[in-house]
Design a protein around this nucleic acid. Structure first.
Lengths: 187, 187
DNA sequence: TAATGCATGTAAGACGTTACATGATTGT
DNA sequence: ACAATCATGTAACGTCTTACATGCATTA
C-alpha cells in the first residue's frame, strides 16, 4: 500500500536531494528557473511538503537563523532517497512519451545525482527504444488522417511529429555526450 | 464575471464545433488519437459536458437511435461559438510558450475551422515573436548555469532549448504553408 | 449465458489555483 | 512610518483520477 505521490512531490524530493532547502527556497527556484514548469504558489508547495513529511520522505527542522522569521529546512530521509530512486528508475513507457515527455526530461535531470550516469544512460536508451517504435506509427497516423483535416489541424499533428523527432535527436546527442565523458574518464 | 472554463472544456468546444457528438464519441476520440493528450475517463468528460451545458455553451439532445442505449448528442450554441472564438484568439503570451506550448498547438489545431486561416496565421506570427525573444534568454540561462550542474541536469536544460527551437522551426514551416496555400487560391 | 461493446453516470478523494492572512526584519 | 522582502501558512473552490454502478444489444 505505498502511498502515492504526485509529480510535484517527486520533483521536490529531487530538489531536496541536491541539498536541504526551505519551502521558500523551492518556491524561488520554481519562480526563477525555466523548465521545471511548476507553480511557485505557496498553496501548492507547503501542503506538498507537509504530505511528504507525513509520509516520512522528508524531515523539516526549524532553523533559528540570523533573526528573520523562522525557516523550516527540509532534508530527505532514507525512505525519501529510496522513493526518489524508485521513481527515477521506473521504466519508460509508451504512455510517458506520448502524454508527458517533459516529465520524463525533468526526471532525467535528477538522475546523475541520485542514481549515477549509468542510470541516466539506461533511461536514454529506453526513451530511444520507445520513440523509434512510436514515431513511425505517429507519422503513419498523420499521413492517413492528414488529408481531410483542416490545414491547421494537419499542422498541429505535424508539430507533434516534429517534437518527438526533436526528442529522439536529443536523446542521441545526450548518449553521445555520456560516451565521450566516459572515454575521458578512462583514457 | 465570465465563468471560467478549464482547458478540457475549451477542447470539447473545439471538437463539437467540427460536428455534434455524444460524450462517448469524444471519449473514443481522446482514446484513439495521438496528441490531444486528455484522459478518456468518463469521470472527466461527462461532468465537463454538464458544466458547459449549464453555462449555456452547448446543448444536449437525446437521440433515440437504432435501439442502443440512448445517446445525448451535444452541439454548440451561439454562445459556445463565441466562447470558442474568444479562447482561440487570446493573445499568445510568454507564459504560454514557457509553460504550455502543447496547449497552444492544440488551440491552433482548431483555428482554421473556427476563425479561418487569417486567425491561424496571426497566432503563428505571435508565437514566432514570443519564441524569438524567449529563446536567446533561455540559451543564455543555460550557458550561464550549465557549468556547475550535473551532466543530466545540463542535458535536461538543453532538451528545453531544443524543443523550443523545434517549435520555432515548425512555426516557420507552417507560415510558409499558409503562404503557399494563399498563392494557389489567388493565382 | 457469458463476454464484449456501446453509452451514461456518480462518489470519494487528491491536488492545484486563487486569494487572503500573518509575522519579522531591513531599508528609506 | 512605511514599503519591501523574507517566510509560512489556510480556506474555498474547481477539477481530475480512480473506481464503481447501470443498462441495452450483439456475438460466441
Amino acid at each position: 500500500m505505498t502511498e502515492r505521490i504526485a509529480l510535484l512531490g517527486h520533483v521536490l524530493l529531487g530538489l531536496l536531494q541536491q541539498g536541504p532547502a526551505a519551502g521558500y527556497d523551492l518556491r524561488k527556484l520554481f519562480a526563477t528557473t525555466p523548465l521545471m514548469t511548476f507553480s511557485d504558489s505557496p498553496g501548492a508547495i507547503y501542503p506538498a511538503l507537509r504530505r511528504l513529511e507525513r509520509q516520512g520522505f522528508i524531515k523539516g527542522a526549524v532553523e533559528q537563523g540570523s533573526g528573520l522569521r523562522q525557516r523550516r529546512v527540509f532534508r530527505l530521509t532514507r525512505a525519501g532517497v529510496r522513493e526518489l530512486k524508485r521513481w527515477l528508475t521506473l521504466p519508460v513507457t509508451r504512455d510517458d512519451i506520448v502524454h508527458r515527455p517533459d516529465q520524463l526530461v525533468a526526471r532525467f535531470g535528477f538522475m546523475d545525482d541520485a542514481v549515477g550516469p549509468a542510470g541516466s544512460v539506461r533511461l536514454l536508451q529506453q526513451l530511444q527504444r520507445e520513440l523509434t517504435s512510436y514515431l513511425p506509427e505517429l507519422r503513419d497516423y498523420a499521413e492517413r488522417n492528414g488529408p481531410g483535416m483542416p490545414l491547421s489541424a494537419r499542422l498541429a499533428l505535424d508539430s507533434g511529429v516534429r517534437s518527438h523527432e526533436a526528442l529522439l535527436e536529443w536523446s542521441r546527442a545526450a548518449l553521445a555526450t555520456y560516451r565521450k565523458a566516459r572515454k575521458e574518464d578512462t583514457p
